[in-house]
């Protein structure tokens, strides 16, 4: 990994190709809305979880910042959406920016403290702030309605139909992916990655590691807040459990399951997680057991998460293809490293 790799602009042809791929992805993503009902609901749950987990994955995979407090951003986004929609109006131009801003604001305010810690201490400090937000959401009853949650949240204006909401969520997921994949190749991303591997050296070279980290932390929080807001509108309900550490835990599991060094890993991680959960829970009351076995198996037999396994298969396939073309394998996806 070289530091300060010059930022290369993509040729226009690349953008066209990317747009084509996006359309194809969007086509495939249309399946849940076409099926409607419960499938659409699971699809929305998957996409919102994937958006949040992808934002977390950026921190984990490139920043080396393993947060167990992303539920705070999710919950803030969800409650911002719930409160604005019920008291003022469910307008997307109001709800979504505020959800993102509130989450990012909380990230900036707490990041000043949390980002000075490392590893498990960072994890626990983010957990502590998220749990404080959880207790606040339980006890500030005048605002949050406490343990009963806020129900009857109206649909997002213009997106009352959940097919449209699903499209919006997919749009955010794609936009988040595009943004993050630019980011990890930008100088900011390179510095973060370098600091993850050797912080002292990155600092010694004069890079503003802390400022970059804080900015990316806030960006990650903002997208997680939007994911929470979308979920709130989809469910029509928010509850202090949205702030609970289990939500952060699920996001982290999804990231690790999908593969922490692949931005798209969380998308597959979220799909697998929600599919296994809904499949197993309809068949046995011991559905947690299945999730547990899945995790153990994923680590023992699938290093680098599902993305790692898929990446290996993908590389194997493209190696065969490229035998004639002669090329080098530059697969960055896969291979878990801490």
């Amino acid at each position: 990994m070289r530091l300060a790799l010059p930022y290369s602009r993509r040729p226009a042809a690349g953008s066209v190709a990317r747009a084509g791929v996006l359309v194809a992805a969007a086509g495939l993503a249309c399946m849940p809305p076409l099926a409607g009902g419960y499938s659409l609901h699971l699809g929305l749950e998957t996409v919102t979880l994937a958006l949040a987990a992808m934002s977390l994955g950026l921190l984990v995979g490139w920043g080396g910042l393993v947060s167990l407090g992303h539920a705070a951003f999710w919950g803030l986004g969800a409650y911002a959406a719930a409160l604005l929609s019920t008291h003022i109006g469910p307008w997307p131009w109001l709800v979504l920016p505020v959800a993102a801003a509130v989450a990012a604001g909380f990230a900036l305010a707490t990041g000043i403290f949390t980002l000075r810690s490392h590893g498990i201490f960072f994890l626990m400090l983010t957990l502590a702030f998220a749990q404080l937000a959880y207790v606040l959401s339980l006890q500030w009853r005048g605002l949050t309605n406490g343990d009963n949650g806020i129900s009857g949240i109206p649909g997002l204006a213009g997106f009352e139909d959940h097919r449209a909401l699903y499209g919006l969520a997919i749009g955010f997921l794609a936009a988040g992916y595009a943004l993050f994949s630019q980011l990890v190749r930008s100088p900011v991303g390179q510095v973060l990655d370098a600091a993850r591997q050797n912080e002292a050296r990155a600092r010694a070279l004069g890079y503003p590691v802390f400022a970059y980290r804080l900015a990316v932390y806030a960006l990650s929080a903002a997208l997680t807040g939007i994911a929470g807001a979308l979920a709130a509108h989809e469910r029509g309900f928010v509850h202090p459990r949205d702030f609970y550490w289990v939500v952060s835990g699920v996001m982290l599991v999804v990231v690790l399951l999908g593969g922490q060094r692949a931005l798209w890993g969380p998308v597959i991680g979220a799909s697998v997680y929600i599919a296994v959960e809904s499949w197993a829970s309809a068949r046995t009351e011991f559905w947690n057991l299945f999730l547990g076995l899945l995790l153990v198996a994923a680590v023992l037999w699938g290093r680098g998460g599902i993305a790692g396994v898929a990446g290996q298969a993908w590389r194997a396939a493209s190696r065969i293809q490229r035998l004639a073309l002669k090329g080098t394998d530059a697969g960055a996806a896969g291979r878990a490293r801490v």
């Binding site: 057991l289 547990g292 899945l294 995790l295 994923a298 490293r337 801490v338």
Partner: peptide, 20 residues
């Protein structure tokens, strides 16, 4: 370099213990 793997596995074990 396998700390997060261990975390994931022990979390899986925790879920298994809870149901068992």
């Amino acid at each position: 370099g396998r700390e997060l793997d261990q975390v994931l596995v022990t979390f899986g074990l925790a879920l298994i213990i809870a149901d068992a």
